[in-house]
Design a protein around this nucleic acid. Structure first.
Lengths: 216, 216
DNA sequence: GCCCAAACGGACAAGGCGTCCACTTAATCT
DNA sequence: AGATTAAGTGGACGCCTTGTCCGTTTGGGC
């Protein structure tokens, strides 16, 4: 669904040519200790990101030490600290993605596009509120837009915009996602002191204005 | 107006208490070589940021060498590479700020708020287009929101939203500024290949939807 | 022309990054 | 079960950038 940036992609075939008919792929067995370490890393990293006041400053050394593994072992699974945060965040995002596809309206299918967009804003901001340190730790500027997760949000919003009959949903999709940047939410909440609920309501208003032809 | 993060702020008074009646402040004379070096630094840095494919990767060493000064001299004026980019960007932003206050409508005063917001979007995106490397080089996550320039944009948008009679202009101001993030513009333009003009039109549309009660 | 303060820049130490390689351990084969 | 093989591990190395210190130079007021 959305793919964090972890390394284990060994069955990569560079060109699409003649991959042997191995059936449904011979299980690329993961060794038990590797899985155990990965779990330890994720667990320790989550605590670390949550505890630090400045998630972007978390270093590979710190994560490795907290997880009780060597740095090279950590590098085997993740290329940099933000990749760890992304993997963590990805788990939470996947649940939301499921609700958006299969869940009940207004988040899931069935509601008018403006209401679905508003519901998505509400749900995503709630995710941000609960996992802000992870989101801040994962934010590496341009990398944010390259993730599978961003592609999912983008596709979803684009679909809603199309259903709403708006011009150029492709260009508008990213614009509609702009206000969800974790750094921006953090600034509003922590620096400006705007309460979560007001941010949510403001976003809901903008969703309705964007997609409802005539406001009440 | 907007203040880049350069060091020379010696007449700072921490508390507002009893600053000696020195008249209009004794001129804190700048030595000629200091000004010359500063100019060289800014000039060399602009070229450097523009030339590199990855503005965030520009290092203090590179800037100093390009300007023909020592690293410590560079540190005297700027704490990090992004501060140099900010100072550079600030000059361009100031011109736009002037037009927004004193210039003709729809950018300046006189036009309805929706049109002024649309005009601001157009102007800012044009700034971004012309100085994207600087904007990307200046973008240091949270720091972006702490700059005087951001405060100006925020105040302006807040004023327009208030004039537009919208609820909670304080929370909406940042939301309206979210889509202007340089990284986002870069992603749309370079990665997705959406032409500049379409991005502008999409933003103009969102501005009108947000602030015009009944679209044509 | 002298003097003092401001400015300069070479040099230093600290710390993170990314990789290599010798050792360990889990899973498979006989 | 024991041997074999390959994946997994982590200590250690070299590289790069940062941020600061301090001896030297330079500008401008007296």
């Amino acid at each position: 669904m959305s793919n964090g940036a972890e390394n284990p992609a060994p069955p990569v075939v560079l060109r699409g040519d003649l991959q042997a008919p191995t059936g449904p792929v011979a299980a690329p067995r993961q060794r038990a200790d590797a899985l155990r370490n990965r779990a330890q890393i994720l667990s320790a990293a989550e605590a670390l990101f949550t505890a630090t006041p400045h998630p972007r400053g978390v270093t590979m050394e710190q994560i490795a030490k907290a997880a009780g593994v060597g740095r090279a072992t950590l590098y085997r699974s993740f290329p940099d600290p933000s990749a760890v945060a992304m993997a963590l965040l990805d788990e939470h995002e996947k649940r939301l993605q499921g609700q958006m596809i299969y869940g009940p309206p207004p988040l899931g299918p069935g509601a008018p596009p403006g209401e679905r967009l508003a519901a998505f804003y509400m749900a995503y901001l709630d995710l941000l509120r609960r996992h802000l340190p992870l989101a801040l730790g994962a934010e590496t500027g341009p990398a944010r837009y390259e993730t599978g997760a961003y592609g999912f949000w983008r596709l979803h919003v684009r679909t809603l915009l199309t259903a709403g009959g708006v011009q150029d949903p492709d260009a508008l999709a990213d614009i509609a996602l702009g206000p969800l940047a974790p750094e921006l939410y953090h600034h509003q909440l922590k620096t400006l002191g705007i309460p979560h609920e007001r941010i949510v309501q403001a976003l809901v208003l903008s969703a309705r204005r964007l997609l409802n032809p005539t406001p009440p």
